[in-house]
Design a protein around this nucleic acid. Sequence first.
RNA 1: GGAGGGGUGGCCGAGUGGUCAAUGGCAGCAGACUGUAAAUCUGCCGGCGUCAGCCUACGUUGGUUCAAAUCCAACCCCCUCCA
Length: 413
Amino acid sequence: MTGHRSELLRELHARGFVHQCTDEAAFDEATATGAITGYIGFDCTAQSLHVGNLVSIMLLRTLQRFGHRPVALVGGGTTLVGDPSGKDELRKMQTRESLEANKAGIRASLARFLEFGAGKATMVDNADWLLELGYMDFLREYGRHFTINRMLTFDSVRLRLEREQPLTFLEFNYMLLQAYDFLELSRRLGVRLQMGGSDQWGNIVNGVELGRRVDNVQLFGLTTPLITTASGEKMGKSAGNAVWLNDAMLAPFDYWQFWRNTEDRDVGRFLKLYTELPLDEIARLEKLEGAELNEAKAILATEATALCHGRAAAEQARAQAQGVFGGGDRASLPVVELPAAELAEQVPLPDLFRLAGLAASNGEARRLIQGGGARLDDQTVADPQGTVARALLEQGVKLSAGKKRHVLARLAG
RNA sequence: GGAGGGGUGGCCGAGUGGUCAAUGGCAGCAGACUGUAAAUCUGCCGGCGUCAGCCUACGUUGGUUCAAAUCCAACCCCCUCCA
């Protein structure tokens, strides 16, 4: 390990959380000798956080694990503006109502990973101070500390300008607001550290500098690397959809499956970032090769799911996967109830697959069948004009679309 | 306000009177190979359908035409340059 004195910093480095850090020596000193309060901001754009936010969440969790104090900030105020970082387009502005709903969902996501309470983790909303900010006061007190010259050099702005994409004044101000958040949090809660993805570096540094200039406090910034899969995909998408943390938006089983399908080359890295298994255990697991690596993937999936949905749900998901992929255990299949009223005596196969949720339309179901991807009780059904006797559905039949999607369909009842 | 360019399927992007449900790429789905991986190869990829065909689609609304994504008019939106 590196020569850090602080246990926290050693752990973060060992697990691959650190991309850049401001004044690392002083930060090492500060975290070695006492507890520090650190925060990360989360967008308020959806009703749940997703796997793309997970590195940040794990970072907060690690902070707490090592006796420091995590603060999660939801950007109720800044979401009204929109972060320009890395984006070419103006983000949609939200209504106040949807913001409140999103906040509640985000708190639910975080509550699984962090222990909230007095002296523990806290959640704050920057709307609490940003909304009452007076424009004139803000310009006079803080605006004078930012030069346009410097702001233009930050990647988030520079890249946007280089690509000749419009950057509105609204978005341009995002940096100032985020810098001000940091200052405000240092005053309100004694926060000394801001963390975030590497794309946040400029915003974070602005905050650090503002703290020094205005309040003469030393603040720290730490960023994580941008996590992508080995094949270069952005982390946290599955079939083009976000992998949500809230179980209302993604079932624990599907969450488990997401991790189980990790690419070989990512297993070790993800075990370090997304589980809390001891590093020597991880070292053993990532050495496995070929089919044996599947064991490591199952462990990754179970550990990651346990953190997010609890140990019981994780074990259940693992057992369910064992049933679906390992044996032919019908009991573990998700059950889909078919509306009896809509079914004739002989049910056409495309209708059956559509009603079971395995195809979006009859056409899609037909193509699935024609392509040889549809199975009924593990027998391939290749005739799109085939039917199934309704009586057979009384007991339930196993329907499969491809190798990974299986359900037990039976008449509702 | 003036001049010019542009708005095409989830995204990017061809097409500029019929052969266009619309080339190509990406994404997605399925098959083969495997290890519920990656890479590769193959098929599918608007909806409905007894695959004959029908319906809805190329910013919006009208029009010309036997026939329009393609021509005309008005309108809306975006971009560039000029004021």
